[in-house]
Amino acid sequence: MTEYLPLILGMMLVTYLPRLLPLAALTRRPLPPLVRRFLRCIPFAALGALITRGVAESGPGMMPATLAAIAVAAAVSFRGGSLVPSVVAAIVTAYLVLSL
């Protein structure tokens, strides 16, 4: 039934600890202003890197659809759209590009 139990538990450990330790260590702890500012830059850096990785590793034939979807989501969001309409417009765009 669970041939891969040791592997799964090992993967859980190395996935969970990086998620838990900083949160447990830093929550409600006074941090130097420089560190706080550094941590406030993380979301922008993370999204920039994740979007780029998504495009770069989108797989064979998927890059045009991925780029188009990202552009549409960014445009809808820029014009004040909330997340759901932005993402729906992007999914439709991706589908249209893939169906071309």
Partner: peptide
């Protein structure tokens, strides 16, 4: 692909 679009819509 919608997940990558989600990142863009958030950013």
């Amino acid at each position: 692909i919608g997940l990558y679009a989600l990142f863009a819509a958030i950013l």
